[in-house]
């Protein structure tokens, strides 16, 4: 394999990320089920410990900072299930990652069609 030039602002969810993020992603996968979402909300710390999250992952979950969750090995499809617990959609998540207001982020999307 030839080394490929990185793409700015993009982390490929590859084997290295998969190794790093497994516990975090497994916890987020559990949020497909309503009972798991309720159990998480009832005791977030206990729920994170049950899935074996490391300190970096736990802190990123407490802070709800998506870029930190990605850096901790999170995969966006699974993180979306975590964000959904708090009613956050892909525009909220996009705005947070790009340091924009949600309105400004939506305007940026509209501008892409001009």
């Amino acid at each position: 394999m030839t080394e490929q030039e990185p793409i700015d602002g993009t982390v490929m969810f590859d084997g290295a990320q998969a190794i790093k993020g497994y516990a975090l992603n497994k916890m987020c996968y559990s949020f497909n089920e309503a009972a798991s979402r309720e159990a998480f909300l009832a005791d977030e710390e206990a729920y994170m410990s049950r899935y074996g999250l490391n300190d970096e992952q736990k802190q990123a979950i407490r802070d709800k900072v998506v870029l930190n969750l990605l850096a901790a090995g999170g995969n966006i499809y699974y993180l979306a299930k975590f964000a959904g617990i708090f009613g956050l959609g892909v525009q909220d998540v996009g705005a947070q990652q790009t340091g924009m207001s949600v309105e400004a982020f939506k305007e940026k999307l509209v501008a892409a069609g001009a």
Binding site: G9, T10, V11, V90, V93, T98, F105
Partner: peptide, 13 residues
């Protein structure tokens, strides 16, 4: 489309 990372919101018409 791109959902994740600092490039979130990327679209290439």
């Amino acid at each position: 489309h791109q959902l994740d990372g600092e490039r979130a919101g990327f679209i290439n018409k």
